[in-house]
Nucleic acid binder design. Structure first.
Lengths: 347, 347
DNA sequence: CTGTTAGCGCCTTCAG
DNA sequence: CTGAAGGCGCTAACAG
């Protein structure tokens, strides 16, 4: 079957077709296509022209099999449709694209089981690296250990696991929490509640610790009754606020573990007719786009989501180019974005 | 080298290793692993145990090469970090996961060139299908035609291209726009401005047409001076509002092409001290989560983003299971989400 | 400068 | 019920 026939009948046009047509060997075609130096200009030109004419697309799968590299990065996030995660992935994709890598995205839906399954799928798919924010259920890390065993670069971000050593990129959650609570104190708040994330997650623990230490530094006793276990979702912010209000505990500020929760808090307080910030001040963590949309605008700890993705991608690339290097743990800085939801004093 | 050695030294454990260890052929191992009926129970058990013990992961790349299917769907979106797109992708991923497919995500960044490049990468990667929302620059569709030529299922969503026939899933943009403009008219608005998206995009044209027809139906003349070419971003909503205010044209409502623009509009109006809805009513399109966060809450046309993704995924699956079937064009219904930003009358 | 050869790891006829 | 053999499309020694 001639190359022309194959092309017309929508069959894959391969190296061999071009080679046959030109009466050269497939190695020659392969080399011409990769611009190998030791190929005659005429041959190269002929090959390139034919490839162009017949819309030849190299079969990356075949190349991967041989080269043992798929030029693919696997990414696992709990939920794709959250601003934070989609923005991190945008950062990863940007770095990946520039370095010639593709990105396979999987969601764990915060489920340990599903995380295990997709990580194995990604192993089978022979991804060259894996970038992960672990599910809130995950405590066992064996499925990630498999990657390390095979020397496949593994980078954690945001939700860092305990009990496994690898690369990571995170923000200084402790410091961010500390600073924003200190800001509340400076505004005159004394009864500051904290709505936490799931308690088994490192990030939750760090923000909680920052909250506690800021209080202690300013001689405000830590009151466990003001610490509410909440979650990461707006809906949980709403229910936790309702529970708190039902508790009738006196409060002058709420530090929410993340912006979606803070938004839920604010919507509920507003609905109950409680003034923000003068009745209760509210602060969050993330700086999602909604923070500047809600009224009053939300004071929050700005996390560089896109940069986190870029950093994770770069760590992967570095591990690829220098295999066996030490693990890289990058901690990015946060910035306070102070807005109306917490301003009680004129300055 | 024994399987034990290979395992210890982190080499890939393959079918052959298991076969050698058990003194059976690799075909037997292959069949045992896929639970082929004609394999002795004892043999099967031995194979499975060894596979388990040595953490055997099938090399999906090798299988793909043979089977000519990578169990992978390519997805191209303009921007990943927008709620709408990340939610659609979440829907695609959900369907894909359940059917055993992986999802490769690429961003075009609204750039034609980049869209062409990533689509070719995806072709080379031998994706089994492609799901796309085209960039706003794209007019030439040759790069997508390549997929159709090779009988690779292609599904467009949201931004439907003209000049190429394929599967698609969209919402009824015309009807959504018509209904929401009619709603404004019912509220007593007579001077309704429209901030459009990029005009070459079908969706933009359809929403514009819905806007015009709703006006005409109610005997309100269409005034081109009230139609502002804008875009899809919050920042463009802000600048366009400023331009409009500078024009000093009398207006009582704005229909923004999408929620991010509507949010930009509202933030600007509020900053200028213009009451919403009584000074100017504002409505959008999408029902992003921010719509319920802004004050007053935004009236908008609710698009089922997740369901769009699910529908696109299902169309892909259907095309895979019934090759050569007719193109499927699914149009999902929208719902008006009427909120304070447009309520001028008590009902 | 180019061809020959030998795989990468898996799957599936075709034999037994 | 199992084995042998060939091949998916590409690459990279190793020879000329």
């Amino acid at each position: 079957m001639s190359i022309e026939d194959r092309y017309q009948s929508n069959k894959e046009v391969t190296l061999i077709d071009i080679a046959n047509e030109l009466n050269v060997s497939k190695s020659t075609v392969s080399r011409a296509l990769q611009n190998h130096h030791s190929i005659g200009a005429a041959t190269k030109k002929a090959v390139l022209e034919l490839a162009e004419k017949y819309n030849y697309q190299p079969n990356a799968i075949a190349a991967s099999l041989f080269k043992k590299s798929t030029k693919t990065i696997g990414v696992i996030v709990p939920i794709l449709s959250h601003y934070f995660f989609s923005t991190v992935i945008a950062g990863i994709e940007e770095v990946a694209y520039k370095a010639g890598y593709k990105v396979i995205i999987c969601q764990s839906h915060e489920l340990y089981e599903r995380e295990v399954i997709v990580s194995k799928t990604l192993l089978s798919a022979k991804v060259d690296g894996l970038i992960v924010s672990v599910s809130k259920e995950t405590v066992n890390m064996d499925h990630f250990q498999l990657f390390l065993n095979k020397n496949i670069p593994l980078v954690f971000f945001d939700r860092l696991p305990s009990g496994i050593q690898s690369n990571s990129v995170s923000v200084d959650d402790y410091e961010g929490a500390f600073k924003i609570v200190e800001h509340l104190i400076e505004q005159g708040c004394k009864k500051i509640a904290h709505f936490t994330g799931p308690l088994n997650i490192t990030l939750t623990q760090n923000r909680l610790q920052g909250y506690k230490d800021a209080l202690r530094k300013h001689n405000i006793p830590v009151n466990d009754e003001l610490i509410y276990e909440c979650g990461f979702e707006r809906a949980q912010g709403i229910t936790t606020t309702e529970k708190m209000l039902a508790d009738q505990i006196s409060i002058d500020a709420i530090f929410a573990v993340c912006d979606p929760v803070a938004i839920g808090v604010m919507l509920t307080l507003k609905q109950k007719g409680i003034n923000i910030p003068h009745g209760i001040a509210v602060v969050g963590f993330n700086d999602d786009p909604t923070a500047t949309v809600i009224d009053p605008p939300l004071t929050t700890v700005a996390q560089p989501a896109f940069e986190i993705g870029v950093a994770a991608g770069n760590i992967f690339l570095k591990q690829v180019s220098e295999p066996g290097g030490a693990y890289i743990k990058e901690v990015l800085k946060t910035n306070l974005a102070i807005r109306q939801s917490s301003i009680l004093k004129n300055s």
